[in-house]
């Protein structure tokens, strides 16, 4: 991965809350266009780290660059160059699909023409062309999540952060969601994703596993399974996190 461009570079990221060390010297790199799985138990410090990488919160120490920008001084630039989607953050329920697309396109300063073209493409891709004026509220969860993802990458960010994007989604839609992730990655978008579905960990090119604020493993899923002689990522995770 040295020959590729680096999307995220984190050297000794430390975040403390008082005496509590939420992130303990996290060091990793994510290549442009990579699908990177960021795993860990609840409370292991994933959310804290994601907030720092998104430029929302400042680290205590460490050298961290996201999309080539420094998280201490250039966090506004970072925010323009990333997309973010979580299970909770979603779309405006009382706005229509089309209005949501227009609104988020507007936030990122896309021209009316670009918004129209890309929105049409999204609707076509998701098969929602007939429902463009439907309120987001009326969509099933799986559709909302697929739409939310498409909205998060509408401005073609270099990196998209996905925080448990598929929680509670039905198995077929969950797989369709991963198709979207693959397509985005093929377009060169770096995907940084957290999940509690361990089968999804296998879909990532590389995964890191966090335990108590530290990264205890970081490799390709196949390599991890070999190292810990496990059949599945679930076993690897249970072995390390327990």
């Amino acid at each position: 991965m040295n020959d590729k461009q680096i999307a995220i570079k984190s050297e000794n990221l430390v975040k403390k809350f008082g005496n509590f060390v939420a992130n303990d010297h996290l060091t990793f790199e994510v290549a442009q266009g990579e699908i990177f799985g960021f795993l860990g138990a609840n409370g292991a410090g994933k959310t804290t780290a994601i907030k720092i990488l998104c430029g929302i919160s400042k680290p205590t120490s460490g050298n961290i660059r996201v999309a080539g920008f420094d998280v201490y001084t250039e966090n506004e630039k970072i925010k323009k160059n990333i997309g973010y989607m979580s299970q909770r953050f979603s779309l405006y329920e009382e706005l229509s699909i089309w209005e949501n697309l227009r609104f988020y396109g507007g936030i990122y300063g896309l021209s009316a023409k670009t918004i129209r073209e890309r929105s049409e493409a999204v609707l076509k891709r998701l098969g929602l062309e007939d429902q463009r004026n439907a309120h987001v509220r009326s969509l099933p969860l799986g559709w909302k999540q697929k739409l939310a993802f498409s909205v998060a990458i509408l401005h073609r960010p270099g990196i998209v952060f996905l925080d448990e994007p598929t929680g509670g989604v039905d198995p077929i839609t969950r797989r369709q969601f991963w198709d979207l992730i693959y397509e985005a990655a093929a377009d060169g978008i770096t995907v940084f994703v957290t999940t509690h579905y361990m089968d999804e960990a296998e879909y990532c090119q590389r995964v890191s596993i966090m335990v108590d604020g530290r990264i205890v493993a970081l490799d390709k899923p196949t390599a991890l399974k070999n190292t810990y002689s496990c059949k599945s990522m679930e076993e690897v995770f249970l072995k390390l996190a327990r």
Binding site: G40, A41, N42, G167, G168, H196, M198, E234, L238, A241
Partner: peptide
């Protein structure tokens, strides 16, 4: 849904 949003270890 007692295990929704809970990590694999806690779920087990």
């Amino acid at each position: 849904e007692p295990t929704t949003g809970v990590d694999a270890v806690s779920r087990k």
